[in-house]
């Protein structure tokens, strides 16, 4: 852990969170990351549907993985019909 975290005197009791849930980044324990081949990709969006963490976004043109939340489960790669996603070691 590089950053200094607050101590017991600084955090609320009872495990109450002091930040909005959007400030929690939960992708840090991923061991594999999805890498997409943009040329092979047909934009079928099956990966977008299947991602259990809603970590894949689609803006009408591009597909992007949000690495702050991707856990590296590999469901996108498994489900991709043209096999354009590779799971690479972190």
């Amino acid at each position: 852990m590089t950053q200094k975290l607050p101590g017991s005197k600084d955090i609320p009791p009872a495990g109450v969170t002091w930040k909005s849930a959007t400030e929690y980044k939960t992708g840090d324990w991923r061991s594999k990351r999805p890498v997409r081949d943009d040329e092979k990709c047909t934009r079928c969006l099956i990966c977008w549907i299947f991602c259990p963490d809603a970590a894949i976004s689609w803006d009408g043109k591009n597909i992007q993985f949000d690495m702050n939340y991707c856990k590296g489960c590999g469901i996108c790669a498994e489900e991709c019909p043209v096999k354009c996603i590779d799971m690479e070691d972190e």
Binding site: L5, P13, G15
Partner: peptide
Amino acid sequence: PLKLDPKTPITIGPLQLFDYYMESKLQ
């Protein structure tokens, strides 16, 4: 207030892993 109240929304009892669990125990 440490209480579930829509006027002052808080989350009670969320996940606390190796980063904060011990601090809660100390409290």
